[in-house]
Nucleic acid binder design. Structure first.
Lengths: 100, 100
DNA sequence: TTGGCATATCGGGAAAAGTCGATATACATT
DNA sequence: AATGTATATCGACTTTTCCCGATATGCCAA
């Protein structure tokens, strides 16, 4: 993954917020219907409601974050759950500390 | 400094390269006229030549990086020398490791 | 004080990103 | 099969970013 694309993914207030929300799903998504969300993640709809932006925008933002390896998704029935991608985030941390 | 602005500053190939070049000025700017460049930094003209982009573009890029506290400048006569801002870079590292 | 460099700023055109509503797709339920 | 719900994709419009050339500013030397 291109470094520039990672930083672009992070160059947006809402996308940074999403990353933050996914850090503590229980706190930020108290109404999440799926009780399993701590492991599988949070579904698009919940993130969309919290963000206040349109469904299409959030869907796109999530795929931008995913392309940058910052989050990952799991499809379960009609829902797509997103959660933080710890591996990608650690890689970013390494980039910052060594290459930058 | 707003986090988004820091990431925007890093969302460009040339700006990332500049940051890299400034890590080892002696290697990347062998023709730097000022022998003192290791401490004071590298002047705009040298960076511009190496980048291949226009003078105005590089001047702007340097000020974007500076606004993000990633580099700092010193004016000496008609030259402006830029170098890495270690404090700002460490702050970024902290952001990545704690807030993100 | 005039001319010559180094850098900064301004104005603009092209490309990319932000954001939306509408539509498509995929799955679930009846 | 038909409808409803969740998400993804498309087309469009606006704003921002990428770069440039031209011009301004600041400093130095003749």
């Amino acid at each position: 993954m291109d470094q520039v694309e990672i930083f672009k993914a992070l160059s947006n207030k809402t996308r940074l917020e999403i990353l933050g929300w996914l850090k503590e799903p229980a706190i930020h998504f108290p109404n999440q219907p799926n009780p399993d969300f701590e492991t599988v993640g949070v579904c698009v709809g919940q993130i969309q409601i919290k963000s206040g932006l349109s469904q299409s925008t959030i869907s796109e933002y999530l795929s931008i974050l995913q392309r940058a390896d910052l989050i990952s998704s799991t499809r379960v029935g009609q829902w797509t759950y997103y959660k933080r991608n710890q591996e990608g985030l650690e890689k970013l941390s390494k980039i910052i500390n060594t290459e930058l």
